[in-house]
């Protein structure tokens, strides 16, 4: 297994991405990026299942249009992590800012701690492609806004008395499913979503994702699963279908 180390500190995002692509082209299985300090688009345009390890703070749009790499961040993410992600996996040992996984259409994102506003906004599924976001901590307002497909799981770990999710959950949602561990005040739900009972298939999905979460970050799968979960799904897949048609 060849490992290539890139010191990012003095590099622009373009130079850094060129280094990563060159390393992948030269056959590196792992690219270690040290000293990331705000470079955008890290991992964009890398169409290979390479492992990119990032130390520091990667910039916004991490792995935008990502198509294959497995990215592990030892630090926090900024905005739009996994913007329009197509395939691959992003694992963040920290928290992330707003619009996590905006418009993602494939791949998986695991966040150890909390996520900012609008996580999973407009994520979508297509045939076999089913994007997944797992947030270990809490999610701020507008979780799953305009969500069109895929799976979001919020565990609310470490939230203590605070609710696991903010206000306006699933506003404009018309596809996909949101699972939330803990209790959710129905006042916080967008009018396009309803609370549904969990099926065996839902539990299988949750169990699998919690297992993966604990593998990445540690934690006791059984203890995490030993809690109430809420399932949210859209009332209709075309909430605005008649908006402009009297």
């Amino acid at each position: 297994m060849s490992i290539r180390v890139v010191d990012a500190h003095k590099l622009s995002y373009r130079e850094l991405n060129n280094e990563i692509r060159a390393a992948v082209a030269a056959g590196a299985a792992t690219v270690k990026v040290e000293g990331a300090c705000g470079q955008r688009y890290i991992g964009t345009g890398v169409n290979a299942p390479v492992h990119i390890e990032i130390y520091g703070t990667p910039g916004s749009d991490l792995a935008a249009f990502g198509n294959g790499p497995r990215i592990t961040v030892y630090g926090n993410g900024q905005e739009a992590v996994g913007n329009t992600l197509n395939a691959g996996e992003i694992v963040i040992h920290g928290h992330v800012n707003d619009v996590l996984g905006v418009s993602m259409r494939g791949g998986r994102i695991f966040i150890r701690d909390y996520a900012g506003y609008r996580a999973g906004i407009h994520m979508k599924a297509y045939r076999e492609m089913k994007p997944v976001i797992v947030i270990g901590g809490t999610a701020q307002h507008f979780l799953g806004e305009y969500m069109a497909g895929g799976v979001i799981l919020v565990l609310g770990l470490g939230a203590d008395d605070r609710p696991p999710v903010g206000d306006y959950v699933g506003t404009g949602m018309h596809g996909g499913v949101i699972y939330i561990r803990g209790r959710v005040d129905t006042d916080c739900l967008g009018k396009e979503v309803s609370v549904l009972p969990l099926t065996d298939a839902d539990w299988d999905t949750i169990r699998g994702l919690v297992g993966d979460y604990c593998r990445y970050f540690g934690g006791d799968t059984r203890a995490i699963l030993d809690a109430p979960f809420v399932k949210l799904a859209p009332v209709t897949h075309r909430p605005y279908g008649l908006l402009y048609v009297p």
Binding site: G38, T57, P58, Q78, N97, Y117, F142
Partner: peptide, 27 residues
């Protein structure tokens, strides 16, 4: 009020830092 622009805050000792991006604070 609905957070349409980003903001990150940090404290270090007696200093409060606020910025659009975390990376800038860490710089």
């Amino acid at each position: 009020r609905i957070k349409l622009r980003p903001m990150v805050a940090a404290r270090q000792g007696a200093t409060l830092l606020v910025a659009t991006e975390e990376a800038a604070i860490r710089e």
